[in-house]
Simulated scan of single mutants.
Amino acid sequence: MDEASHESFEDFVTASADRLMRTAFLLTGNRHAAEDLLQGALERTYQRWGRERIIAPEAYVRRVLVNAASSRWRSRQFREEPLDAAAERAGADGMPDLAMRDQVLRALRELPKRQRAVVVLRYFDDLPEAAVAEILGCSVGSVKTHASRALARLRGSQHLGDVRVRIERRR
């Protein structure tokens, strides 16, 4: 890879790393797994960066993240873990946010992998349905169906009871 391509890749990572890390975290529910997932996705992207033109690099990395997360979910070795012990030791000021985050992550874990991917890309990453469909390699109608079913499951989730009440009060 030439120096200009290397620098453009570094600029891309610097500009999008936080957003991509959030996506990876929401897909995995675990910071360490998210870091591993994102690292692998960025490595794969780097290998292609100099050889071919990637038109929408952030969308490409998101697709790699979703595919890698799906492979991880299928793996027999995969085991979901609770929030990091360090996060659970947070001070009293951080507890309401930590508790809400934990409720959301638990509810997301209840969703089938495809529905979770749609919810993360559509609502947390705020991507349009067409972009989600392209990333997941499906139709816009399929994205709408998965989103509708996921939202219905989330509405009925036991884990989101307190979060729903807080959201309703904010309106």
Rank of each mutant, 00 (worst) to 15 (best):
S8N: 12
E52G: 01
V118W: 10
F9A: 07
V118G: 00
L105H: 06
L108Y: 07
T28P: 00
Q77K: 11
V120P: 02
M95Y: 03
D18K: 11
F78H: 11
E43C: 13
H32I: 06
L98P: 00
R116C: 03
G156Q: 10
S148D: 11
Q77Y: 10
D125F: 06
V64Q: 04
K144L: 05
T14A: 15
H159T: 02
R53E: 07
R109W: 06
A150N: 07
E134S: 13
R89Q: 09
M100P: 00
D36L: 12
E43T: 07
V64Y: 01
R62M: 11
Q115F: 08
G141N: 11
V118D: 02
M95P: 01
A92T: 09
Q39H: 12
E58D: 10
L105N: 02
E3Q: 13
F124C: 07
N67I: 05
D84G: 06
Q158L: 15
A152P: 00
I54R: 02
R19S: 14
P128Q: 15
H32T: 05
M21L: 15
D36S: 14
K113S: 09
D102S: 15
R116P: 05
D162V: 07
L111T: 01
Q115G: 13
M21A: 08
A69D: 11
G94D: 10
W49R: 06
E10V: 15
V118C: 04
G141W: 13
A15D: 10
K144N: 07
A90S: 08
E52W: 10
S8P: 00
A68E: 07
M21Y: 12
E110C: 12
S139P: 01
N67L: 12
F78Q: 13
G94E: 15
R51D: 04
L42Q: 09
C138E: 06
L127G: 04
V140Y: 07
P82K: 11
A24L: 11
Q103E: 13
G29D: 13
D11G: 03
S75V: 05
M21R: 08
R114W: 14
G91R: 12
H146L: 13
R62Q: 09
G50C: 12
A150W: 10
A150D: 09
D162E: 15
H146D: 15
R74G: 13
R153P: 00
V143R: 02
L37Q: 02
I167Q: 04
A17P: 04
A92I: 06
R169M: 07
R116D: 07
E10H: 04
A107T: 06
L27F: 11
V119E: 02
L83C: 02
Y123K: 11
R153E: 15
E80K: 11
L154H: 03
V104K: 01
Q158N: 06
A117E: 11
N67V: 08
A4N: 07
F78P: 02
L136I: 03
W73D: 15
R89M: 14
